[in-house]
Design a binder for these strands. Structure first.
Length: 220
DNA sequence: GCATTAACATGCC
DNA sequence: GGCATGTTAATGC
């Protein structure tokens, strides 16, 4: 459970989180978009956000999801002048907006917190590397399987039937997360359901058999 | 075989 | 109606 450990370490930044403005975003509401001034970091208190690039053709690539205890907009404290991504809420989402200068000066004085921030950044990077490798080498079944596994580990809610992926995702969202067409994602999901690996209904996926999913990541 | 695109059907807020 | 989902035919690599 490396993700849990990393999230726990972000608790070192907690004294900061009381020093920002709390903001509530509704489902699909845009938190920021490319080109706007990048002057704050967000801490996610509850809900989820989707970080994506939008191509001029209208196609979207979702770089990742962030959930409770995560940060978003970290480019602001790394010297980024303007936002590069779209960030949207998935379901009602409560954020704490932290001023860039406040965060940077605080991190300079708190090496422990800075280090946990680095660990968290590394986790984000690792997830992106996994996606890149999958897009280069794996088919859609494998890509989807790994993504579902990752989502269930990161945002999973235990239930009687299995692990519910606790964010409001459409097939289109999932397709944009694995760089595939929505139709193929629907087909792949239906196949996994027929094999008894998951249950699904609108906006809802329950992973019933993680071991089978893991096997699917490797083989086509 | 695997995947994309386009088109269309169905069903749920 | 608009959006999410299911399905299929045509086409490309």
């Amino acid at each position: 459970m490396p993700s849990v450990q990393v999230r726990d370490t972000l608790e070192a930044l907690e004294p900061l989180f009381s020093r920002g403005e709390r903001e509530l975003y509704r489902d699909r509401e845009v938190i920021y978009y490319p080109g706007v001034t990048s002057d704050s970091l967000f801490y996610i208190e509850s809900g989820h956000v989707k970080v994506s690039f939008l191509d001029t053709s209208g196609k979207r690539l979702v770089l990742g999801l962030r959930g409770p205890g995560d940060l978003v907009g970290e480019g602001a404290i790394m010297g980024e002048a303007r936002r590069r991504h779209f960030v949207q809420a998935l379901g009602d989402t409560l954020l704490v907006r932290l001023d860039r200068d406040l965060v940077t000066s605080w991190l300079r004085r708190n090496p422990e917190a800075s280090f946990s921030f680095l660990q968290w950044l590394h986790k984000q990077r690792t997830e992106l590397e996994d996606l890149l490798v999958d897009v280069a080498f794996r088919d859609i079944q494998s890509r989807l399987s790994r993504k579902l596994l990752q989502l269930s580990e990161e945002f999973g809610v235990p239930t009687e039937e299995g692990v519910l992926i606790g964010c409001r995702l459409t097939h289109k969202d999932l397709a944009e997360m694995i760089a595939s067409a929505r139709e193929n994602t629907t087909l792949a999901l239906n196949r996994l359901e027929q094999e008894g690996i998951l249950d699904k209904s609108r906006y809802r996926i329950v992973v019933k058999n993680r071991e089978s999913l893991k096997r699917k990541c490797r083989v086509g």
